[in-house]
Design a protein around this nucleic acid. Structure first.
Lengths: 332, 332
DNA sequence: TTGTAAGCGTTATCAC
DNA sequence: GTGATAACGCTTACAA
């Protein structure tokens, strides 16, 4: 790679002159600038990023720690993060915790050595279950800003971008009760142990309580037997007239199982699930979805973190990104 | 952040002694080492990564450029890449081209300034359509190793990790013809312009040709009207007795549409699609899938690239990762 | 307008 | 066993 030194030597001027010329300093004559530009162009000179980082003590890099990226929600958030970061001239280093506390901890530690200016993260499942967050606190204590999104830790004070988990499910449930006159609404959940899962279930319970209806919750822990479990439940509980799935997959499966049992959707059964960009394409009849604005969550996270990095008196805040209830044509 | 200098000052010894002690040099006395270790531990000293990178001229970072990450295939590849990179002590900087040539070009350029030791990439759709690859060649000419996976450019000579696109579809088609005695096999495709799409279609054609059957190809360009197009096709072509989808989404939709038309699967219609980890969960009856080993592709890519980075006489190679034909219970 | 020199935090060479 | 010094490539007072 071409360096300033090489350019300087070839042009018979000093390194600092070259540096200033390339930074378009007013100190340098137009003539010299021109000579420098041309040679730099010719030799395809690019300032060494590492050296700049060392000098300025800024990496312009964000560490992004995600539980997984095969879940479309996190994939879409990553998309938003990458887009916003790029447009602010930041790079992102991505680590996947695979829902493991240990991996999350190691990633944070490894990148806390000057590799990144700050972190954007969603807490690993294990960290939430174990209620362990000392590793995150320690990063913040070391003056490296952290932003948490979606799955957050209440005890930790930092910027947060969250979804209206409680509210969206509350409203969806209320809609089923009031508009569609449903009385036996089943909640299907495979994320009960996550902060977001708890909030969503809470929203469901609240709406039912207000209508004096009984909650029915089907907890699933193993993705592989979801089909059977739902099928059995629907067979044994013929009165079920609506299903709310609080994840992005069991809703589609519920529709398939209901069809298998000869139920007409949405006449006999309404189904609302969480979903993202293409979820609706995969079910027929179309599932109604609570659409989390994952891309926007990613974008907002970057904006907020960068503000924290660049603003002297940044005030920590929690932003709630409202979800959008998207009714399928057939349900409405 | 604590630096060597600070440790040195506090211990009243020189920076170089501290450095050597921390690197467990035999030159340093056990006693000194102990004092250094303890203070470093206490002050949570971590060697500044940027300084090390500048010194060694190695970033231990891989630039990963993906067309998108909301496609489960690329998400899973990324998972494999992250896993393998982490276990080899490499970080990854992720850029998404969003299928755009311009973005791909800018990402490559931006990271070619010493930010990464090498690249792993799948070419953007636009780059393939426009047959533009000068930007990639120029990176390689600058002595930065590039590894391409899945979507590759034949003209560029570099390490490659690819899928057996031709072979897998050829075999799947052959299976439908010979074992299931299907005669009217439809190929559904929304990736016709990609190198991988062309290869898959070729495999299909070859198998049909050998059996003296006519190809029927339904090209879809807009995800939103896939349902209607498939529905119409199946309605107008009642003799269709098998469908091969060469992407990861239209197969599931085809099953839904066939059911809507009252067809029995797999009796009236066999469906084989491309799929990944959880694809089969989303359809009922279960779709048969050509399972691309996305995670392994990611892992292999990292292994091969790192070998290139660290081996003096690395020989460029192309690795083919065979797919696995997974028949649903109901089809077999 | 240009150049000198110090410094970012680390490692490595060489002297003491 | 320990320390002084230079170097990686860049930026930036300060000097000329």
């Amino acid at each position: 790679m071409t360096t300033l030194k090489e350019l300087a030597k070839l042009l018979n001027i000093s390194v600092s002159t070259v540096s200033k010329a390339l930074n378009d300093s007013h100190e340098i004559s137009e003539n010299t600038k021109k000579r420098v530009y041309e040679l730099a162009e010719k030799l395809n000179y690019k300032p060494n990023r590492i050296a700049q980082q060392l000098k300025t003590n800024k990496t312009k890099t964000i560490g992004v720690i995600l539980p997984t990226v095969t879940n479309p929600f996190f994939a879409e958030v990553l998309h938003g993060i990458e887009t916003a970061a790029t447009s602010s001239d930041y790079d992102i280093i991505v680590c996947l915790s695979n829902e493991s506390l240990g991996k999350e901890l190691r990633s944070l530690e490894l990148l806390s050595n000057g590799s990144v200016d700050g972190f954007i993260m969603a807490v690993a499942r294990e960290s939430q279950v174990e209620e362990e967050s000392g590793h995150i606190k320690s990063v913040i204590d070391n003056k490296i800003p952290v932003l948490m999104f979606d799955r957050v830790v209440n005890e930790i004070i930092c910027d947060k971008v969250i979804v209206d988990d409680f509210q969206s499910v509350y409203e969806a449930t209320e809609y089923l009760i009031k508009k569609e006159k449903r009385k036996n609404i089943l909640l299907v959940s495979n994320i009960e142990e996550l902060s977001v899962g708890k909030l969503r279930t809470k929203g469901y319970r609240k709406a039912l309580e207000e209508a004096n209806l009984q909650p029915n919750i089907l907890k699933l822990d193993n993705v592989e037997d979801v089909e059977d479990k739902i099928y059995e439940y629907l067979k044994d509980n013929g009165k079920t007239d609506a299903i709310i799935s609080i994840d992005h997959i069991t809703g589609v499966i519920a529709i398939n199982m209901a069809k298998k049992l000869g139920k007409s959707i949405p006449r006999d059964l309404s189904v609302i699930g969480f979903g993202y960009e293409h979820t609706h394409l995969l079910s027929s009849p179309k599932i109604s979805i609570i659409h989390q604005k994952a891309f926007e969550i990613g974008e907002m996270s970057v904006t907020l973190l960068i503000d924290n990095l660049n603003t002297e008196n940044h005030t920590l805040q929690t932003i709630v990104v409202p979800s959008e209830l998207k009714f399928s044509e057939s349900t409405i």
